[in-house]
Amino acid sequence: MTKQTEENVYENLRKPGTQAISLITLFFVLFTGLIFAFGLKLENAPNYLLASTAFQIIIALIGFIPLLYKTKPNNYGKFVKRLTGFSALCIISVYNLTFTVYNIYFYLAAQHGVYLFKFWIIGTLTMIICYGFQLMQQFTLLREPEKFKGESENDKFLRKMIFLFMFKVLSYIVFIQKIIEYFTIPNIAESRFTIIVVGVLIYAAMVFCSNVLYQSVLAYIEFKEEGKSNEAGHANYA
């Protein structure tokens, strides 16, 4: 990775990706507001949906904070902290979008007097848990084989592959859950297709977040190597 690429990674994580995702999230929140305009009364909306939507709005607004940090830090420690923050916020923003779209179906159901808390809580928790497994898979992928336990290099590499496979399989449970959900949840106002849309968004979110983590790690490595090169240059000059 060149210095220019390092700068690009920093800037891309700072803007405009996270902000674009936040705007899309807010758009879907506004779309949810139309449901209230067409019949759903606030007092009839489930508290768990209102609370989750409020949380989603907060996350979306926080996504604009990176715009305040225009200059890339020259200190490695500050660079790591800031890039980690940008990466985490970008990933959370993408995940947040999937939950926002998922809620739309349950608002539509509430508009028709149907309350599906069990479906919502199972679906939401499954998404959260599987996102966690997906992140664990990515962290395992980026971890050096030498850091795994084993008597030989092959043992360590094999252990890493086992963990990778395990976390990947566990992260895909969410798709099984969405398939089951699609065929079992009531088709309120012919809007059950929303579950399919959410499934596609979940897959896209996983791919996107994997790329964010990969690019972030490359930027960490490049910045650290650049610092070592500068220190060596100063030492030789002295």
Score class of each variant (00 low, 15 high):
residue 99 F to M: 02
residue 80 V to K: 01
residue 36 F to H: 14
residue 73 P to G: 14
residue 109 A to D: 05
residue 43 E to S: 08
residue 51 A to C: 04
residue 53 T to V: 15
residue 52 S to R: 15
residue 64 F to D: 15
residue 71 T to K: 15
residue 60 A to P: 11
residue 68 L to N: 12
residue 116 L to D: 04
residue 76 Y to C: 00
residue 123 G to Q: 03
residue 120 W to N: 06
residue 104 I to A: 06
residue 73 P to V: 08
residue 100 T to K: 01
residue 84 T to C: 00
residue 58 I to P: 07
residue 48 Y to W: 15
residue 64 F to L: 13
residue 81 K to P: 00
residue 120 W to I: 05
residue 127 M to F: 10
residue 49 L to H: 00
residue 83 L to Y: 06
residue 125 L to W: 11
residue 131 Y to F: 15
residue 78 K to M: 11
residue 95 Y to T: 02
residue 119 F to H: 05
residue 102 Y to E: 09
residue 87 S to V: 04
residue 71 T to M: 12
residue 57 I to S: 09
residue 125 L to P: 03
residue 34 L to P: 02
residue 110 A to M: 13
residue 72 K to R: 14
residue 35 I to R: 12
residue 56 Q to I: 08
residue 131 Y to E: 10
residue 91 I to Q: 00
residue 105 Y to E: 02
residue 73 P to E: 08
residue 129 I to V: 15
residue 120 W to Q: 04
residue 94 V to P: 03
residue 91 I to C: 00
residue 76 Y to H: 03
residue 113 G to C: 10
residue 64 F to S: 13
residue 80 V to W: 01
residue 130 C to P: 06
residue 99 F to A: 03
residue 49 L to Q: 03
residue 87 S to I: 02
residue 69 Y to T: 15
residue 127 M to W: 03
residue 95 Y to P: 00
residue 117 F to K: 14
residue 106 F to H: 09
residue 34 L to S: 12
residue 100 T to D: 01
residue 105 Y to H: 06
residue 42 L to N: 10
residue 105 Y to D: 02
residue 93 S to C: 04
residue 47 N to Y: 08
residue 92 I to D: 05
residue 37 A to W: 12
residue 72 K to L: 05
residue 62 I to S: 01
residue 128 I to Q: 13
residue 57 I to G: 07
residue 133 F to M: 08
residue 40 L to K: 12
residue 123 G to D: 04
residue 113 G to W: 06
residue 106 F to Q: 06
residue 56 Q to A: 13
residue 63 G to H: 02
residue 58 I to N: 10
residue 61 L to N: 10
residue 105 Y to F: 11
residue 67 L to I: 08
residue 68 L to G: 07
residue 59 I to G: 07
residue 81 K to R: 09
residue 36 F to C: 10
residue 76 Y to Q: 04
residue 79 F to H: 06
residue 80 V to P: 00
residue 38 F to S: 09
residue 47 N to C: 03
residue 131 Y to D: 05
residue 99 F to H: 03
residue 45 A to V: 04
residue 94 V to Q: 14
residue 102 Y to D: 05
residue 94 V to Y: 13
residue 53 T to G: 05
residue 43 E to P: 00
residue 92 I to H: 03
residue 37 A to F: 14
residue 132 G to L: 01
residue 36 F to P: 07
residue 70 K to N: 07
residue 62 I to K: 00
residue 42 L to A: 15
residue 129 I to S: 04
residue 113 G to M: 08
residue 123 G to K: 02
residue 54 A to T: 02
residue 114 V to M: 07
residue 74 N to L: 14
residue 124 T to H: 09
residue 36 F to Q: 11
residue 79 F to W: 02
residue 107 Y to Q: 09
residue 113 G to A: 07
residue 104 I to G: 02
residue 124 T to D: 09
residue 85 G to M: 08
residue 129 I to H: 05
residue 35 I to A: 09
residue 120 W to P: 05
residue 132 G to H: 04
residue 107 Y to R: 12
residue 87 S to P: 10
residue 92 I to A: 13
residue 132 G to P: 08
residue 66 P to N: 10
residue 129 I to C: 08
residue 92 I to Y: 06
residue 50 L to G: 12
residue 87 S to N: 14
residue 82 R to C: 00
